[in-house]
Design a binder for these strands. Structure first.
Lengths: 191, 191
DNA sequence: GTCTATACGTGGATAGAC
DNA sequence: GTCTATCCACGTATAGAC
């Protein structure tokens, strides 16, 4: 844990704070440089392009999200709450200084109809990981079709994120969590 | 119904077909002009700016969406199906030639952290209208908290839209519709 | 009213000094 | 390794002719 951050870290931090809240296309590199306190030459020494920088920031962010989510799952008392823990994790993550306006991954997908490889890879990895993890958690519950339940939770989770675009004010995941709880109960009861 | 479209209409059509699938920031005005078959001067004669053009396209789109949704509600057999008709409307709308990749309104909100007035107004109008209409439809059902149910359906609807960003391939609203159906049933049963 | 041509700003990326 | 200065491409918007 170095006391002085490297230029790379400062740039990645700036991307988290600026790009993922203000948008990829609307945030010029200059703004990132100013926030990071480094010069353009330094950026292009460490990264091939703006897109590569953003791709790297998405990868780092994905790792951090996994960590927050894992922690929330570990805190949960039973299998039902472990599946719903994704909403606790969302609130934890959104509360961080680098918590974005809605979702950096969906945001990148929304802005870039066909993203460059560095970014596309990060997007696919995020969705695959979410789907796989939710399936594993749903499989521990006594229901007929855990994959189906996992997909429903993923949709509700994505909806909870999208609702952040409709009303500007900060928001907790209570509505999404309550919906998902109802779905889990219905799936378990119908078994 | 004029046989020859006006330049304004051709421009609005081009915005529907290009901007709302490829993104606002990533679609240059030149691409819109080429698609519409008019020149830059003509655009700026009819509209103050690119943003004003997009705002106008969003307004026209909102009216069309209302029409499609109203039709779907009219086709529905009972109050439960009338509330769920928003998903039928979504599939109808997405199937049109001007049906976008996910949602033009959420897309604009995602791209522009603080949009110009012309666009911001259209965004607010869309969400307000959706919320109001869903509340009216939910109020016809025997449940304890129709506003709550309406908000849940709006979240699921938004999630169905957001899921279109995760997997690229075309998608029907079956998952969202099934989830919403479960929520309606649970709300009515709990009454 | 619509076109051609162009002005003007801005953004991403690089060269070369230290 | 980082900075200053700069290049080049592109994107929005306008001027002036027809």
């Amino acid at each position: 844990m170095p006391l002085r951050k490297s230029s790379e870290d400062k740039l990645l931090d700036a991307v988290d704070e600026l790009v993922f809240t203000r948008g990829i296309e609307t945030t010029p590199v200059d703004a990132v440089l100013a926030r990071a306190g480094v010069s353009a030459a330094t950026l292009y020494r460490g990264f091939r392009s703006k897109e590569a920088l953003i791709g790297a920031a998405l990868e780092r962010r994905h790792g951090r999200w996994r960590q927050v989510w894992d922690d929330a799952v570990d805190r949960a008392a039973d299998d039902r709450l472990r599946l719903l823990a994704v909403f606790d994790a969302l609130d934890d993550f959104a509360g961080r200084p680098d918590g974005a306006r809605w979702c950096a991954f969906l945001g990148a997908a929304a802005e870039l109809a066909d993203p460059p490889a560095e970014i596309a890879d990060a997007l696919v990895r995020d969705t695959e990981h979410m789907r796989r993890t939710l399936r594993d958690l749903a499989a521990r519950l006594p229901c007929d079709d855990p994959d189906d339940l996992a997909e429903a939770v993923l949709l509700v989770f994505s909806g909870e994120l999208a609702m952040r675009l409709r009303d500007a004010r900060p928001r907790r995941s209570t509505t999404g969590r309550r919906i998902a709880g109802t779905l889990v109960d219905a799936a378990v009861a119908g078994h």
